[in-house]
Design a protein around this nucleic acid. Structure first.
Lengths: 156, 156
DNA sequence: ATGAGATACTTAAAATCTGAACTAATAGGA
DNA sequence: TCCTATTAGTTCAGATTTTAAGTATCTCAT
């Protein structure tokens, strides 16, 4: 009779730890951003995507896909960011159905200000806990999972 | 001049892949449960915790902590599960502030029915994508991150 | 014993998110 | 061309989640 009642396959433990740790990590980072920068992690993520995009602009669809957001959630999300003056919309000349979300100067400022504390926390919670080799290993594992997810998405 | 504009430290890539993959994986699993079992991943998770608990019962606080849920969210969550007949509450004899959430027989049935399709998908998206050694490796990395998170939580 | 603070849980109002229409525009084959 | 199917985005109602406050109970140093 063993004290270990857990399953022998280490993947069981990995699965639970993976799901739980990612949730806790997101929560911790969301909390920090709300407290110190007055924005949610989702807000930060939108600003990040736009700050990296050419012309600081992206189509709504593009943002929704990268954020793993429903389109209606994104509409709402972008609405609130527009109200705060951090984003503006602009029609897409070559596709009159579409619109761009564009980062304003004010939005760039807010992002830059938020990024400091955010990076500091990510450093503390993620970078400091792993060696570069760990990072390589983790990236490999995640890429493997991401590929599998993509296949799954492909066969509907 | 390199084609690789990404940072040299592989942890940058690991960080993004980790956050994004965990979000996509949760979404995929949530979708499957909603479609095939009429319950959200959060519902499933509550049922899972209770199905493993001695006496199929846990204090509200205990569930909230393990689920990374606010207490008021849990109150709502448990309310809806009670309405569906899957859970019931019972006062805690030795602490009259508290209450247990208890899995009903019906709840056990719903959980068992949901578990089939759920496990199948987790097998496909997680187990099949990783070797047992990968699992061991991933579990180790996650444990490292979880420890760091715990330290962080300790100094407020 | 007792009273100040902590703890467990709920409630209510406001903010956010989802899913199903709905509008407008594009794409592509007959 | 014209008709139908897709696609981009929004809107609205309803569901969920958060935040702050409220109630009841417990803890423990006085």
């Amino acid at each position: 009779m063993s004290l270990e009642i857990e399953d022998v396959d280490p993947r069981g433990r990995a699965w639970r730890l993976f799901i739980e740790t990612s949730a806790r990590l997101s929560t911790a980072i969301d909390d920090q951003l709300r407290r110190d920068a007055g924005m949610a992690l989702a807000d930060y993520h939108v600003l990040l995507l736009l700050s990296e995009a050419p012309g600081h602009r992206l189509r709504m669809k593009e943002i929704a896909e990268r954020m793993v957001f429903s389109q209606s959630r994104l509409t709402y999300q972008v609405d609130t960011l527009c109200k705060r003056g951090w984003l503006r919309r602009e029609p897409v000349p070559e596709d009159r159905r579409g619109s761009y979300a564009i980062l304003t100067d004010e939005g760039r400022g807010a992002f830059a200000a938020a990024a400091r504390g955010h990076r500091e926390l990510v450093d503390r919670l993620f970078y400091d806990a792993l060696t570069p080799d760990d990072g390589r290993e983790l990236a490999g594992l995640m890429a493997r999972l991401a590929d599998r997810l993509q296949e799954h998405r492909d066969d509907h």
